[in-house]
Design a binder for these strands. Structure first.
Lengths: 177, 177
DNA sequence: GAGTAGTGCTTCGAATTCGAAGCACTGGGG
DNA sequence: CCCCAGTGCTTCGAATTCGAAGCACTACTC
């Protein structure tokens, strides 16, 4: 029971940063989603997936890598990749070294769609997000948020949280403190 | 005058700010959601609603105000408020001056739950979000994000997007000609 | 080479989400 | 007073989401 800690009120700045972060990301995501729907009939997740794949050297990623990149449940990923595959925008194939792995590759049609929606996407970003910011603001935002991102990524298990089977499992070897 | 605008590539800093923003908010939201589920059996939206109500002077808000505060669809709001009401955490009542309005009020039980989950919520925020940041970082984050938020709120209609606005709705009936 | 734990992905059922359509009421004109 | 457009909220159906359970395979141990 470690909870005799001092009561934790947050600074106004801390609260402000938190609320503004949530609000901004929600609003942004919402607007972007509409844009993507119009321009290419893509959901935001689908766009993120295609963009991630398009960014990869050979246009391929493992399912797990995709799930890690986009914060998403495994099952949801399976569903969306299924949709993208059905639409012909990606292809699924076996993984080279690991027979249980699945490699997802973006198709030419996928790159097409990506190219079609990207300009509008950037437009929305500019108008809604970047417009009121000075270059230095953008810099500082990028810097600070990157620090937070790295911190968050370092804390929890990246994906595949330990699967609780029956009763308490002993801690596996490799105990780092 | 259509849009012969130059192709718009984004700075690395701009891209970085955008991606980090999305990623951070997703990760944060995800973790917070788990915490809330454990501590008080609340979804994130439900927590936001209770928090908004708890913040109001008399613990009451109109549905529309709630939908504005939390970025959310009207129907989703109806659903979640219904859940909260069923759980006894809020009460619905008629609106004072507008008979089509509905006033939502947080109950004592609602405040209870809020008080129970809040400490853990703040804990998560500190550990995941604030920990790696210097006070000046938090300040700058709050400042910049607030600017963006205000900008975003100013652009589109706050809520209730015009139901059939847009095209030719211009001609008033009185055109005596 | 068999056994056991751990990982990669999918299937399944249940809950949540949204947009469109509908109902109830307000406000401005004729 | 009645009509019409506009707003506030809910209902409806369809799509998306997640977690738990399951199957297939790898890695490690003996």
């Amino acid at each position: 029971m470690t909870e005799a800690e001092p009561p934790p009120p947050l600074d106004p700045a801390e609260l402000g940063a938190y609320f503004a972060l949530i609000e901004v990301s929600s609003l942004l995501r919402h607007t972007v989603e509409q844009q993507l729907r119009d321009a290419g009939d893509l959901s935001y997740v689908q766009f993120q997936l295609l963009a991630t794949l398009g960014d990869a050297a050979d246009g391929s990623r493992r399912m797990t890598e995709l799930a890690d990149g986009v914060v998403y449940s495994r099952s949801g990923l399976t569903y969306q990749v299924g949709l993208l595959e059905k639409a012909g925008l990606v292809a699924r194939g076996p993984s080279a070294e690991d027979d249980r792995g699945v490699t997802v590759t973006i198709t030419a049609a996928g790159r097409d769609v990506l190219a079609r929606v990207f300009p509008g996407h950037i437009d929305v970003l500019r108008q809604l997000f970047l417009e009121p910011l000075a270059p230095e603001d953008v810099d500082s935002l990028a810097r600070v948020l990157t620090v937070v991102r790295d911190h968050m990524r370092a804390i929890p298990p990246r994906s595949a949280k330990p699967r609780r089977k029956g009763t308490a499992r002993q801690s596996p070897p490799g105990g780092g403190a």
